[in-house]
Design a protein around this nucleic acid. Structure first.
Lengths: 341, 341
DNA sequence: TCTTTTTGTTTAATCGTTTAAACATAACCG
DNA sequence: CGGTTATGTTTAAACGATTAAACAAAAAGA
């Protein structure tokens, strides 16, 4: 790795002090510097292709212009889309993003958090893991600016930008009911994560509002961290074997939907006649499935942008202790999987 | 942002110099330091929850333990999967990854490259953009370790880990031919990028080897950067309107395939009877399409791991000027879209 | 002419580490 | 006992920037 040109190199070439070079290149003390000298410095900097060492700058200024992004898995399309939007928004403000996947594991999340803090990131955008309350405390104790996305802990006061998951599920069930569905089922994860809890709660409330009796047999929870595929398959199999099988399923995430659809497809289950479907999040597959899928679209762009803006605002004005807590509305995109043609 | 504990804090609390603290915490001069003092320092560090400032460390050591990843678009599942693998591989070696999306634009790519270089990344993994040869020169001139993935410039000597795209296409055409296909078409991008050029070349060679006369009408190139969707649709429409329409299509990327499939689905084109299909890369949709898709699977894990390892090796031993250039084999996953059941 | 102000530049400290070299003090040796 | 060696710790420079403060010289004012 060839050594980069430093202020010193320019200074010695021009025959001035590094201080002067720094002043000139940062357009400071503009009135006081001899024009010829300033010009000479600028030219030399250009000639030598000078670019400031951001590490040195960061150390001195106590600011890295770096944001840390902690998600469950960057290869999950939901998070990678979010990452892209955050990247663009950060870039607009001259920030760079470092990322890490925590695999829904509070310990990994904690490790990443430390790694990023050690690197002096100016702030963090986090999709926290289950049981990640302690991590949050660490962030708060150390006054590290951060925003949560996708989920949050209702008992901890933090900034967050999330979907209104309760309302989204509710909307889904109402849509089912309007279409004549009598026994909708829910396939979700077994987890305490607030966003998923709310999805379930909304589902249950939806049943109530439509006068459908809640029966736990219609609400299946699969392992969150592993065996998801086989458990989703098992869940569907169990549902379909019920004396009165459900006539609709709401999948609480894109991953669940994907596994579920594979099963449904492989077993020639007729959608929507035999089973109407709604999924959280869109899949590539959503409109390619023989019965294009009705789904709840998250406003990913808004989430990413608001989260980044909220974070940057916090970084710029650490005093502002007003919390930003935004629950955005999901759009129900209606297609054939709930619409017998 | 609360200030972090520094070596100085520990030093003054214990009553020794920062040097000693540094030696102790880095387990250096182990023989020479009084055990009680060492213990005291370690305890105090623990108590105060000391964590070294990586920025300061980076500045001093001229090493950041950071890798830069430049892809076309982090939200493209191909690249986000790669990103995840690179992340894990980097993490195993105590590196962190910063990423940027260049949108297949050499200028954006150049900007990212500078941003990352300014931040003193130890090396870069790059999916270079069309006309990105100059960027490559910059990297070489400055002795910045880097590896290319997915594509490379055959005229520039660099490290790269890519798919053997020529062979992959060839394989696809042979498979078509074996299935009785007479007039396979190709839908690809209009670009000089080597990987896509090779995909085309392999396709053409496949035709030749199977005694099919090459006809430019069966090889459609869509805009790379925008309007891809409409151009793919137009391409398929044109193909199907030919006096002798193709009986198969090879899509040269996941995005092309996605647009193509939507068109095919919307227009009730029968797969594989009317049109057999092979795609580069898997989609969520691949096995959910009513005729599950035959596709060319890239060894993403291998690409990511080899690229990271190659980069780290370069960083550790900059003298080693032997080039790593690896073309990996695609696996043809055969399913119904080329198999009338 | 002597102060005061303005103009232009340098000095030196600082950010938080690392590390060669210097410096004490104690132990060993002939 | 004087000189060497071993042991334990500190000093100080360095990484590459920023910036308050000091400084010097020229211009303005009294």
């Amino acid at each position: 790795m060839k050594k980069k040109i430093s202020l010193k190199d320019i200074a010695s070439k021009v025959g001035v002090s590094t201080a002067l070079v720094s002043y000139v290149l940062n357009n400071q003390k503009s009135g006081r510097i001899r024009k010829e000298v300033a010009l000479k410095i600028k030219q030399t900097a250009q000639e030598l292709n000078y670019r400031p060492n951001q590490i040195a700058k960061s150390l001195k200024l106590q600011k890295t212009f770096t944001l840390g992004l902690i998600v469950a898995d960057i290869s999950n399309p939901f998070f990678s889309s979010l990452a892209r939007i955050i990247e663009d928004e950060a870039d607009k403000n001259k920030y760079t993003v470092i990322f890490g996947s925590a695999d829904e594991d509070a310990e990994k999340s904690c490790k990443l958090l430390h790694t990023f803090h050690d690197r002096q990131v100016d702030g963090l955008i986090i999709a926290p893991a289950e049981n990640g309350e302690d991590n949050t405390k660490y962030l708060l104790d150390n006054g590290i600016p951060f925003v949560m996305i996708d989920r949050y802990f209702p008992d901890v006061e933090t900034n967050w930008i999330c979907l209104d998951n309760y309302e989204a599920s509710l909307k889904a069930v109402h849509h089912f009911a309007k279409g004549g569905i009598k026994r909708p089922a829910l396939v979700t994860y077994k987890t305490k994560l607030f966003n998923l809890a709310q999805r379930k709660k909304g589902f249950v409330e939806g049943l109530r509002e439509n006068g459908i009796i809640e029966d736990p047999a219609y609400c299946r929870e699969t392992s969150f961290l592993k065996n998801t595929k086989t458990e989703v398959e098992a869940a569907l199999e169990a549902l379909l074997k019920l004396p009165e099988p459900p006539d609709a399923v709401l999948f609480a995430s894109n991953i669940l939907a994907l596994h579920g659809l594979r099963y449904i497809h492989a077993n020639n289950i007729r959608v929507p006649d035999q089973l109407a479907l709604i999924t959280f999040d869109e899949l590539d597959a959503s409109d390619l499935f023989y019965a294009p899928l009705t789904f709840l679209r998250q406003p990913i762009r808004e989430i990413g942008q608001l989260a980044t803006q909220c974070l940057l605002a916090q970084i710029d004005k650490p005093s502002g202790d007003a919390l930003t807590q935004i629950a955005l509305t999901a759009e129900l995109v209606v297609r054939q999987s709930t619409h017998p043609v």
